[in-house]
């Protein structure tokens, strides 16, 4: 009986979730868990709703519980990573994201998530790089670090005053969250601006912000991920050259016949691209 009730409550929760009523959804999932505490899906569903409500720690708890019930749990790792990233733990977030990607690529019916998870992996890499970059820049520029903390302090003060005005009823909750978001964004922009100014004044730093031509695909003009080489020794990004060959099966440079099966992975260049991504993903991500 309780399993049936749990299933009913879960369905109600899902319906609320779909309508964007996340607090209602959380309440239903919690009731369902009281009826059946052994269903990992109830925890991942509640985690997803808690992510929407920005209840990061609670969402993490749910993911851990779900994983303890079912280890090969792509969704739980994906949600866990999102909460960890929000709590500024990019290293942990990246390992969760890679776990999710791994499970996703193994599973046949969840391939539709692959694209989103790939994007999330890149986002974690960028966050990890940002954290390292911040440390590095701070070491080199104590002044910059100090200014950044001041901006962060200002932001915190601003946000707590918004919270106060929300408590006294001076601000509605929608207006308060809008103002909080605006403050966070402004602070981020100021910090970005500040870092740029410092970077410009640092000649060593500027030199590193160039992408070597040999890492760039001549068709998409993007830094390559998976370069393949033609018979003539020229390399392209696999996805773009395949797109060209579908329409016109000739070598783009020599116009000689060329088919997808003639392409070979360029492993050394791929390593060079990986290394470049690892060292520069912070800005190369938006390049």
């Amino acid at each position: 009986m309780s399993l049936y009730q749990a299933e009913q409550l879960k369905e109600h929760g899902n319906a609320h979730f779909k309508r964007g009523e996340y607090d209602e959804a959380i309440a239903r999932y919690s009731q369902a868990i009281q009826q059946n505490s052994n269903n990992p899906l109830l925890y991942t569903n509640r985690a997803n709703a808690r992510l929407k409500m920005k209840l990061w720690e609670d969402a993490m708890d749910d993911c851990m519980r779900s994983i303890s019930l079912m280890a090969e749990n792509m969704k739980a790792f994906y949600f866990l990573g999102q909460a960890q990233l929000e709590l500024h733990h990019p290293n942990e977030a990246l390992s969760s994201a890679l776990m999710a990607y791994d499970l996703c690529s193994k599973s046949s019916h969840q391939t539709s998530s692959a694209f989103a998870i790939t994007g999330f992996v890149l986002k974690c890499k960028k966050a990890k790089w940002d954290l390292r970059e911040k440390d590095r820049v701070r070491r080199r520029h104590d002044l910059l670090g100090e200014l950044e903390s001041k901006l962060e302090e200002d932001k915190k003060r601003e946000i707590s005053s918004i919270e106060e005005r929300k408590v006294t009823g001076e601000l509605g909750s929608v207006a308060a969250s809008e103002e909080t978001e605006a403050t966070t964004e402004t602070t981020q922009q100021k910090i970005e601006e500040l870092r740029n100014s410092f970077a410009i004044s640092d000649p060593n730093h500027l030199e590193k912000r160039e992408v070597p031509e040999y890492l760039v695909d001549d068709i998409s003009f993007e830094i390559m991920h998976d370069p393949v080489v033609t018979r003539h020794g020229h390399s392209y990004e696999r996805a773009t050259i395949v797109e060209h060959l579908k329409r016109n099966p000739v070598d783009p440079l020599t116009r000689e016949p060329l088919s997808v099966s003639d392409l070979r992975p360029n492993l050394a260049l791929r390593k060079a691209c990986d290394e470049f991504w690892n060292n520069n993903s912070g800005w190369a991500f938006d390049w």
Binding site: D218, I219, T240, H244, N248, P252, L253, R255
Partner: peptide, 8 residues
């Protein structure tokens, strides 16, 4: 022309 164009 479509046939002779190359994306490079």
């Amino acid at each position: 022309d479509k046939q002779a164009w190359s994306p490079v």
